[in-house]
Amino acid sequence: MMRGGWTLPVLCVLGFVFLYAPILSLVIFSFNASQLVTVWGGFSTRWYGELMRDTQILGAAWISLQVAFFSATIAVALGTLAAFVLMRFGRFRTRALLTGMVTAPLVMPEVITGLSLLLLFVSMEQLIGWPAGRGMTTVTIAHVTFCMAFVAVVVQSRLAGMDNSLEEAAMDLGARPVRVFFDITLPVIAPALVAGWLLAFTLSLDDLVIASFVTGPGASTLPMVIFSKVRLGVSPVVNALATLIILAVAIGVAIATWHIHRRMKEARKD
């Protein structure tokens, strides 16, 4: 192998082009003045204006954010409970079964999850009248079921890495089990809860298949609206929307990187 030659830099550039050229072209075309997505008609912010007036997209975005927020929050609560039971309650009889059931949604094809949930919701409505019809509630419940599995896995690994004697020490110093959980366990696993929440939020925001099954009239999520719009031909409005999403993600990543960098610098200083 040649060292310090041009092979490595070229491969590197090719790699980055492969990854980012599509995104870059999307950003550029969001500023296209032309109606046609593939023909450059000069610079314009016209589509951003149209996006702001497109109530369908804005409404769907608002629904998606709400669903993502609530399902991530509920998933964190339930997933943490599941992880806690699996890690701290020793070897109870149905442990293996519970482990399997908690992690099953990770490997279950989305189509099956979506379909089975739809059937469940329909039969529940017939039997007990709840949930009445399908909409935001059913989408949120559906998202909780699969996001919870991801949260449980993340929290479980954090609990496994946590020194058991921390909790014992708190108990030894006079704290009752519930107190121990809130004073010691929760703060120590907090980073995993944040990570789990963000993961669940992203997964929920991103989901198209399951939402399509269990949603009802008036509760289309953003991925569903975008997908249906693209089927009718790519609208430059979608480009504008995508650019805004990329911008938001980029800002989020930048803040996270800066935060981690600062924490590491602090740790080194100690």
């Binding site: 020194d163 004697s165 921390l166 014992e168 020490a169 708190a170 108990m171 030894d172 110093l173 006079g174 704290a175 009752r176 010691i184 120590v188």
Partner: peptide
């Protein structure tokens, strides 16, 4: 443990 008149110093120290 939280009602015993004992306290323990752990091998790992278990500082919060």
């Amino acid at each position: 443990p939280y009602e015993r008149p004992t306290n323990m110093m752990f091998q790992s120290y278990a500082l919060f």
